[in-house]
Write a protein that binds this DNA or RNA. Structure first.
Length: 416
RNA sequence: GUGGGUGUAGCUCAGGUGGUAGAGCACUAGGUUGUGGCCCUGGUUGUCGGGGGUUCAAGUCCCCUCACUCACCCCA
């Protein structure tokens, strides 16, 4: 037997209904906030991800599905959505008609990591990006949007963690100060942190190894190094979160794994996912559009892990499954072929109707109608064919009524 | 990439110290010659994850491998 690929997953009937429900809620909310959908390819030139996410990141270094196509060009299954959306924004010169664009997309991402709870090699993300707005008010609105999404999906116990990573003006000063501290405690750091110290010192801040946390307990905080503009930006952001009554926590150790972030970053965390505590994450990336060859346009965006969302949403599959409203139990060849016509007509009228074409006994047809949870059963055998009246049984009340076979579609439409 | 746990019927799982595979549920047929759920009776289903080894004999012991799962790492 051929099995699906490790870390990949079938979404089966039953689950799909829940997915559709979550998508529906998401689209409605995002569109109310002025977002429009964009769909980009899942394959892009490898270069795009290297330049946006960063060469030194774990994603690019060891998690991407990259391979040469038949001409030898290196292409990659997208590990995240932002790079593609930015590419598309630039390529189609969306900034020309109106630099302010609010885009969302829902689709699969691919990362070759070891699978575990809440982590798949193909996973779905809801993504939203806002281009062309510098104001921190937009940062707050983005958090509001995520918070409301969770609220509408009745997701309990999530908390927004927020931080500022500064900008190309102030971050180097912070990095310098951090590097000095790292240098002074370098013999206490774990192997990973030693490596990070040189390449990406900020990432040592979210190391979970206790000895590293201890060694870095009085490491400088980025908030002490923010330039005036970044500080103002962050403060306005915080105060507008407060004004909107959005619960959040300033988390100075919140650093993120992608290089393109500037200023505001955030993560929505939960205790319900085992080791994976982030359901959503994102931030501002004011330099990325330009870095990828576009004009200087600020941007902010986030991704929500679809599987993780569904994991903690506690939605009942039963509430979403589609039950037939009518089951036709026909007996004998003549009745089956007549009933078959009716079934087609009912379906075309929007009345979901099931029947058995295999010549089964009435008892077994009733059993199946029961299993499918059909509301009504239409019984139609030789007796009914002769009398001209079929029997309609209500499966809940067990009430049975005779229905004239002439105009049976209309007669039944009136009753169910 | 590293470590732990688990792989037996469609599902949930039994199968001391090796002796040739079971239960419940599900499915199906009948009891009820044309009426579902409850009850009763019968029936179907297995490459015991895969490969190799030890043995007269392996679901059981040994080796290898694969998958699932949880954790590290990282992230959605």
């Amino acid at each position: 037997m051929i099995q699906l690929i490790r870390g990949f997953k079938d979404i089966l009937p039953g689950e799909v209904e829940v997915w559709q429900h979550v998508e529906k809620i998401t689209r409605a909310l995002f569109e109310d906030f002025g977002f429009t959908e964009i769909r980009t390819p899942i394959l892009e030139r490898t270069e795009l991800f290297k330049r946006s996410i960063g060469e030194e990141t774990d994603i690019v270094e060891k998690e991407m599905y990259t391979f040469p196509d038949r001409k030898g060009d290196l292409i990659t299954l997208r590990p995240e959505a932002t790079a593609s959306v930015v590419r598309s924004y630039i390529q189609h010169k969306m900034y020309a008609t109106d630099p302010v664009r609010k885009l969302y997309t829902i689709g699969p991402m691919f990362r070759r990591e070891r699978p575990q709870k809440g982590r798949y090699r193909q996973f779905y993300q809801i993504n939203a990006e806002v281009f062309g707005v510098t104001s921190p008010l937009m940062d707050a609105q983005v958090i509001l949007l995520i918070t409301k999404l969770f609220e509408r999906l009745s997701i309990p116990d999530v908390k927004a963690h927020v931080n500022s990573l500064g900008c190309p003006e102030c971050r180097p000063k912070f990095n310098k100060a951090l590097e000095d501290v790292l240098e002074s405690v370098k013999d206490k750091l774990c192997e990973d942190c030693t490596r990070r110290s040189g390449k990406n010192p900020m990432r040592t801040l979210d190391c979970k190894v206790p000895s590293c946390r201890e060694a870095l307990s009085d490491a400088p905080s980025i908030s002490d190094f923010l330039c005036t503009e970044c500080r103002n930006h962050f403060e306005t952001f915080i105060s507008s979160l407060e004004k909107m009554d959005i619960p959040f926590k300033v988390d100075k150790r919140l650093v993120r794994g992608l290089d393109y972030y500037t200023r505001t970053t955030f993560e929505i965390q939960t205790e319900m996912l085992g080791a994976q505590n982030a359901v959503a994450g994102g931030g501002r990336y004011d330099g990325l559009v330009k870095a990828l060859g576009g004009p200087e346009q600020p941007a902010i965006g986030f991704g929500v892990g679809f599987e993780r969302l569904i994991d903690i949403a506690g939605l009942n599959v039963e509430d979403f499954i589609n039950k037939p409203s009518l089951y036709i139990a026909a007996l004998g060849d003549r009745c089956v072929s007549e009933a078959f016509n009716w079934q087609c007509l009912f379906n075309l009228e929007g009345i979901r109707t099931e029947m058995d074409l295999g010549g089964k006994s009435l008892k077994s047809q009733m059993k199946r109608a029961d299993r499918l949870d059909a509301m009504h059963v239409l019984i139609f055998g030789e007796n009914e064919l002769e009398s001209g009246f079929a029997i309609l049984r209500n499966m809940k009340t067990k009430e049975q009524t005779e229905i004239s076979i002439n105009n049976i579609i209309d007669n039944i439409k009136k009753l169910i």
